[in-house]
Amino acid sequence: MEWSILEQYGPSLLRGFGVTVLCWILGTIFGMALGLVIALVQRYAPRFVGWIVQAYIEVIRGTPFLVQLFVLYYGGPLIGLRLDAIPAGLLGLTLYGSPYFAEIFRAGFRAVPHGQIEAARAIGMAEPTIVRRILLPLGLVSSLPALVNFSIILTKETVILSIITVPELMYQVGRMSAETYRYLEANLVLALFFWVLVEAISRVGRRVETRITKHLIERT
């Protein structure tokens, strides 16, 4: 690969990387938030609401992310949902991640010893207070490793956003290779880049995880 290419396309690649990181972080945060809501709804809402939520989970988990994006971005305008590429991509990532995050939170809540919740009820805590002070703090810590793990998986999903023209890293690489005819080199470098990125994030994730678990063991 000639260096002049990198000089010429450097800025757009950097911008693309910025969009990738932005989509990843916001998608993870929104997806986690929606997932938490889903997990709480499944725990507390009446049964028929639970069924609706379960159907939503099955649909999202049973269909490819790419098809979900197509429905949102190309199908949305037909029912008046007109979104630019980046908001559509973010909404897509949020919806796609939410059921997986919800499952993680659900497992985390299940790991909270039932006696703790009973004890809280016995001393007369109101149900919202139990959620806030017992269920969430205990449940969130035990779901942390799985949350980190799924967030790493989401980094890899962000490249799919390039197909609906979100100007993230892969989109910029695609444009660069179309203009320079260097398809193989460009994609190879992109592959190596993602490899390093994912490895680095998972190393950091594991370190954070060990630290928090250590803290947990000391406390209990």
Binding site: E58, V67, V71, Y74, G75, L78
Partner: peptide, 30 residues
Amino acid sequence: TRASQAQAATTFRPLEVYIAAACIYLIINL
């Protein structure tokens, strides 16, 4: 997915076509 793109391009009805595609994936996976 590719077939649904082609179908959406000829019918100009991406919403229905892509939802149909999603349904087929869902049935296979269920």
